[in-house]
Simulated assay, not measured.
Amino acid sequence: MTSEPTVRPGRPFFSSGPTSKFPDWSLDKLSTESLGRSHRSALGKSRLKYAIDLSRELLGIPDDYLIGIVPGSDTGAVELAMWNMLGARPVTVAAWESFGNVWIQDAVKQLKPANLTVLEADYGEIPDLASIDKGDDIVFTWNGTTSGAKIPNTDWIADDREGITINDATSAIFAQEMDWSKLDATTYSWQKVMGSEAAHGMLILSPRAVERIESYDPPWPLPKIFRVKKGDKINGAIFEGATINTPSMLATEDYIAALEWAKSIGGRSELVARADRASKVVLDWIEATPWLRNMVSDPAKRTNTGVCMVFQGEWYDGLSDEDKAAVPKKIVKMLEDRDIGYDFNGYRDAPPSLRIWCGSTVEANDVAALLPWIEWAYEQVKTELS
């Protein structure tokens, strides 16, 4: 392709986090009555509780699971779960990309629980999860945000498990169905699939997780923002609209607006379908493009959110490592400068790659409009580096 394409994406937002706002989002869609009010006021707590209740409804979370809004985005929620629950049993931490490796480092260098097993795999692969003992506590990432590799199923989690599962679901939840019967602590952040503002995390606890927290006191100190017990019992107020520290009510209203939009279009099933439609456009294009391959070799493990692709072919393979790393950066800059597509470079710690976010707030036709531009930019870069 030598000439510039003529069709431009209507919404050029392809970042994997914070992700695109929902279609037709605008500030005037946000309720503002809670702004300038205390989050502890009846109004403030009611809006926080409404965000929790809408989340439960849309995600189909069982009634006996607790849902809380916690500090520190998904990172804070995962670490809160790890700091409160690990150390009671043997632990396996499984990771296959950058963020999962953060949880490994937390376990290895910070918490240092006895009987720790680490399972790792390269980008695009998943370790042998079936090898995990059912007596272990398990920390894992449902969907590899920086590799595009997701777990294909939850068959590897035993129904009669003795340990608890801690599931970082931030780049999957709302776009992929969760198997709640296998999940004890599940976390996510507002700025991923729902495209809302950042800073706050969601913590979802099963009755088994609550029992662990109430029956176990870890040997390490807990920072205030990780403390979810009051005496020997879970602090139920945290899961009814109270928060450990002061939340942003503006961010809360933005999340509520996204949840209300999701409900208006058909709920969780339509959110999943939207991600499936957008990702299929990219997945099919990668298969038809000889100079690209999906970072994930097994189709059953390919995500429908942050689709990651690497370059291949005789021309690319002959480049220096420096030039190989420059190819995706140059493509992205060329298209960002033209306002065609923003923030779709691969993650900084991943192999040189492109990563196109196809989550539930993205339109499939915008993804389709981006791809010919990538082809055009690739040819420009190829000429420049040849």
Rank of each mutant, 00 (worst) to 15 (best):
I238Y: 15
S386Q: 15
G359I: 04
D155Q: 12
P328W: 01
A199I: 08
G241P: 07
T32G: 06
P219F: 01
L183Y: 00
N235T: 08
K45M: 15
L119H: 08
L59N: 06
I52D: 00
P223A: 13
I265T: 10
P247N: 11
P219D: 09
D53R: 08
K263I: 10
D366I: 02
S215P: 09
Y188T: 09
G346A: 09
S215M: 07
L271W: 08
A81E: 03
T187K: 06
D136E: 14
T303I: 07
V118L: 11
V78N: 00
W103G: 00
F311E: 07
K49M: 13
K49L: 15
T165V: 07
D349H: 13
W261L: 08
I204Y: 00
K233M: 07
N143S: 14
G346D: 03
K333Q: 14
K150P: 00
F311K: 01
P9A: 03
A107G: 01
S3C: 11
R348W: 13
S15G: 15
N235K: 14
A369S: 10
L86Y: 04
I265N: 09
I225Q: 11
S206L: 09
P372W: 03
A368I: 01
A275C: 00
G346Y: 02
I374S: 01
S131K: 06
W373M: 03
Y123R: 04
S41F: 04
I132E: 04
L86G: 00
D133I: 02
P12Q: 10
I132C: 00
W220I: 13
A185F: 12
G313H: 04
T141G: 01
P127F: 03
N84K: 05
P299E: 10
M178S: 12
W190I: 02
T383R: 14
V367Q: 09
R40L: 13
F239V: 09
A209D: 05
N245M: 14
V228P: 02
S215T: 15
V332A: 03
G241V: 07
W291A: 05
A326L: 12
W180Y: 09
I204F: 00
T92K: 07
S386I: 12
V282R: 08
T32F: 04
Y65G: 10
A368Q: 13
P152F: 07
D276K: 15
A88S: 15
R348F: 13
L205G: 05
P18K: 07
T32D: 06
A95H: 02
T361C: 12
E270A: 05
P207V: 03
I138M: 10
R56S: 12
T117C: 05
R47A: 07
V381H: 11
I204V: 13
W142G: 05
T145D: 05
K182A: 08
K301W: 01
D155H: 09
W142M: 15
D298P: 07
D339S: 14
D24Y: 11
V91F: 00
N365M: 10
I151W: 01
S297L: 11
T383H: 12
F239W: 08
G44C: 09
H200K: 14
R40A: 09
M202H: 13
I132W: 01
P23A: 10
D339G: 04
A94K: 04
I69S: 02
P23C: 09
W156Q: 09
I138D: 06
T146N: 13
